[in-house]
């Protein structure tokens, strides 16, 4: 009896050591991403406006300019790879911690044609979620079917050779709760405190090749549309003003795939009408509100350079205020 108790004790001790190692490995090797800052910002402070969506929203919308003169606060919570499912659980998290007054969803129709790749793209958000019911639900809905590295060793998605030399800095930031943003300043872009990413200008000759755009109503990944519906429903139920915006696309791209874009615009027109969501599309209704010239962008996907983004945010802010009457 005594020996089996001792065996159990050493087993528990050993398991604790393994667990401690895994936690330490995560602390030291999982990098401090800007999503860590974004999630921290919306969880700790109540914002009036939170912008959700893809990389286009991240680079085109500066919340401070958007809200200039209103005295309201905002945060840009967009990121490349943020699908409606992520936006939905980010909203759930905010509702649990610090609910915003208004949510603007930046919609990229391309996201509705592709399945979200499991693994890293969920972890990007999940890892930063504080302990909450939303985190648990997000897990049950997404990470559940990812391989067990996503829970036991989330750093697997990052290159060790890159993370090893930064261990001390990573640990220091995490342990001291340092959310300063200078580390996110790179050669082509700069992250701002309010979540906006400012892209440095790029000459059109240096644009990456245009990949083309496809949109077929029947080929959509249902899950994405379903979560957009759920998101809109959730906001409606909790009294949050929910709106959708489609960022301007460069004229070159619009001219290359007019049919596909046409199908996308009319589909989301109908979608928003059916769900009574206010839609701002800068390629149709508000086409003239902002330039579609390549000079404003850094690629044909429509990511704006910083200067244009500031200007565009100002224009969009005015429209938003007028729209509200």
């Amino acid at each position: 009896m005594r020996s089996s108790r001792r065996k159990l004790f050493s087993l528990v001790l050993a398991l604790c050591l393994v667990l401690a190692f895994l936690i330490l490995a995560d602390l030291a090797l999982y990098p401090c991403t800007f999503i860590r800052n974004d999630v921290h910002a919306v969880v700790t402070d109540r914002k009036d406006l939170v912008i959700l969506g893809s990389s286009n929203g991240k680079m085109d919308l500066d919340p401070d300019v958007l809200l200039a003169g209103t005295g309201k606060t905002g945060h840009n919570l967009c990121v490349g790879g943020e699908y409606p499912v992520d936006a939905f659980y980010l909203t759930k998290l905010m509702l649990e911690k610090n609910p915003p007054e208004q949510i603007l969803f930046e919609l990229d129709p391309g996201y509705f044609m592709t399945e979200k790749e499991p693994g890293n793209n969920y972890l990007l958000f999940f890892h930063e979620f504080p302990v909450s019911l939303a985190k648990l639900r997000y897990f049950a809905d997404t990470l559940r079917n990812c391989d067990l590295r996503s829970v036991l060793f989330p750093a697997y998605e990052y290159s060790l050779s890159y993370e090893l030399p930064r261990i001390r800095e990573t640990l220091r930031r995490k342990l001291s709760g340092d959310y300063s943003i200078e580390i996110f300043k790179g050669k082509v872009q700069e992250y701002h405190e309010n979540g906006f990413i400012e892209k440095y200008p790029v000459q059109e000759e240096q644009f990456p090749a245009y990949h083309g755009f496809e949109f077929m109503v029947n080929d959509q990944v249902r899950r994405n549309t379903e979560y957009l519906e759920k998101l809109s429903g959730l906001c409606g139920k909790r009294g949050i003003d929910f709106r959708i915006a489609v960022m301007p696309v460069p004229q070159t791209a619009l001219d290359r795939d007019p049919e596909a874009y046409g199908r996308a615009w009319s589909y989301f027109d109908d979608f928003c009408a059916a769900h009574q969501i206010r839609l701002y599309n800068f390629n149709t209704e508000y086409y003239d509100a902002f330039s579609h010239e390549a000079a404003c962008y850094v690629d044909y996907d429509g990511h704006m350079n910083g200067e244009s983004a500031e200007e565009f945010s100002g224009v969009f802010g005015t429209i938003l205020r007028e729209g509200r009457g």
């Binding site: 065996k7 050993a14 499991p118 067990l148 590295r149 697997y156």
Partner: peptide, 25 residues
């Protein structure tokens, strides 16, 4: 001894978690 048994498991676990390719499973 138990500690050695756990070490074997631990080494196998960490190898499986850390050494595989990044791509989604």
């Amino acid at each position: 001894p138990v500690m050695i048994q756990v070490t074997v498991c631990f080494v196998l676990l960490m190898a499986a978690l850390m050494l595989g390719p990044m791509s989604a499973g």
